[in-house]
Design a protein around this nucleic acid. Structure first.
Length: 297
DNA sequence: CGGAGCTCCTGGGGGC
DNA sequence: TGCCCCCAGGAGCTCC
C-alpha cells in the first residue's frame, strides 16, 4: 500500500531515471488507468485514452514532485509549461523503469517510451485503483486537482499549531482524521496504525477531546515512523509495492502492530488486536492503547 | 458543509 | 482438486 515513504521512494527514482527525458510514444493498455484524464477542448474525439497519449507525446519531463501520495512531473517546453503528468498509485500501482526490450508485465496499464531510446516508464497496476492523467497546473506549479491535499508531516511547510487547531475542531475519531488527506497527507492505513501505537493512542479517540500535547506526541510518532520507513525505502507488506527498479522496501521488518495480530506487543507483551473499522483493519495493543470511554468511529 | 458510508478492482488464500 | 467468498484499502462521490 503505497503511502508517503513508498511514494517518496518512487519519486526519487523518477527524479533519477526519468526527469530530463522526452516522451516519444505512449501506449494505454487499459482505459481505467487514465479515467481521471479530462480531454481538452478541441483535442479530437472525446476519448480519454487517445487524448492522454496525444497530450504526453513529445513532452519533456522537467521535474518530479510529490504532495501526499500524489506524484507529478511537470512538462517544461514553453507551450506546455502549465501541464503535468499526474500519478496516484492507489493500492497496487507501480511505476517501473524497464528496458524497452523487457517482457510485458501481466498488469501493464500504460507504457511510455522515450526519444533517447533509453528504458521505458511503465505503469503496472493489479487492482486498478491507481491512475495517470495529464492535467493543468496552477500559478505555483501544482496540479489544480490536488490543491486540496494538505502538506505532509515531514514537509517543513506543515504547521503543527494549525494541525492541532484543525484536528480539535473535528468531530470524529483520530484515525479517520489521520486518513483525511485534506487535514494531513501521506498517511494511510499502515502508518496510521503504527503512529497511533507509538503515541499510545487508540484509533477511536474523539478528536475534540485530544490535548495539544497528545497531538504533538502523535506527530512525533508519525514522523519517527515515516522517517524510519523512508530510510528503508518503504514497506513491501504484500509485495505489491516496489520502487522504480523493482526492489522491495525493508520496513515491514520494523512494523510494530500492522500485520501482527495475535503476536506480542514489543513494548508490553500483550497480544496485538485486529479490529474491523472504517471497512478496513486496525491494529492496536489493548494495553498500550486502551479504548477511550467515549469512542468515536 | 462536515461527517460517514459506498464503490471501484483483482488475485491470493482459506474453507469446504 | 475446484470453487466460492473474503480480504487488502485510497479517495472521489453521494447523501444526510
Amino acid at each position: 500500500m503505497p503511502e508517503l515513504p513508498e511514494v517518496e521512494t518512487v519519486r526519487q527514482g523518477l527524479e533519477h531515471s526519468v526527469v530530463g527525458r522526452t516522451v516519444r510514444d505512449v501506449e494505454v493498455r487499459h482505459p481505467r488507468a487514465v479515467r481521471r484524464h479530462v480531454p481538452g477542448p478541441g483535442n479530437g474525439p472525446e476519448n480519454g485514452m487517445v487524448d492522454f497519449a496525444a497530450a504526453l507525446r513529445g513532452a519533456r519531463l522537467a521535474a518530479a514532485h510529490r504532495r501526499g501520495k500524489y506524484l507529478w512531473l511537470p512538462f517544461d517546453s514553453a507551450d506546455r509549461s502549465s501541464r503535468a503528468l499526474l500519478a496516484h498509485l492507489g493500492m497496487s500501482g507501480q511505476l517501473l523503469v524497464r528496458p524497452a526490450s523487457a517482457a510485458q508485465e501481466p498488469h501493464l496499464r500504460v507504457r511510455m517510451s522515450f526519444a533517447d531510446d533509453g528504458p521505458d516508464l511503465r505503469f503496472v497496476d493489479q487492482r486498478t485503483f491507481g491512475a495517470l492523467a495529464v492535467v493543468p497546473t496552477d500559478g505555483d506549479g501544482i496540479p489544480v486537482e490536488i490543491e486540496h491535499i494538505a502538506h505532509d508531516p515531514l514537509d517543513e511547510r506543515f504547521d503543527d499549531a494549525d494541525f492541532v487547531r484543525a484536528l480539535r475542531r473535528r468531530r470524529t475519531g483520530i484515525k479517520r482524521a489521520l486518513l483525511d488527506q485534506t487535514l494531513i497527507s501521506g498517511v494511510g492505513n499502515i502508518y496510521a496504525d503504527e503512529g497511533l501505537w507509538h503515541a499510545r493512542l487508540h484509533y477511536a479517540r474523539p478528536t475534540e477531546t485530544m490535548r495539544a500535547a497528545e497531538i504533538e506526541r502523535l506527530l512525533t510518532g508519525l514522523r519517527a515512523v515515516l522517517t524510519a520507513a523512508l530510510a528503508k525505502r518503504g514497506t513491501s507488506f504484500d509485495s505489491l509495492y516496489i520502487d522504480v527498479d523493482g526492489s522491495s522496501g525493508g520496513f515491514d521488518q520494523s512494523l510494530q502492530v500492522y500485520g501482527r495480530a495475535g503476536r506480542p506487543c514489543r513494548r508490553c507483551g500483550t497480544p496485538i488486536r485486529k479490529d474491523r473499522f472504517m471497512n478496513r483493519s486496525s491494529h492496536t495493543c489493548p494495553r498500550c492503547q486502551p479504548r477511550p470511554r467515549r469512542a468515536r468511529w
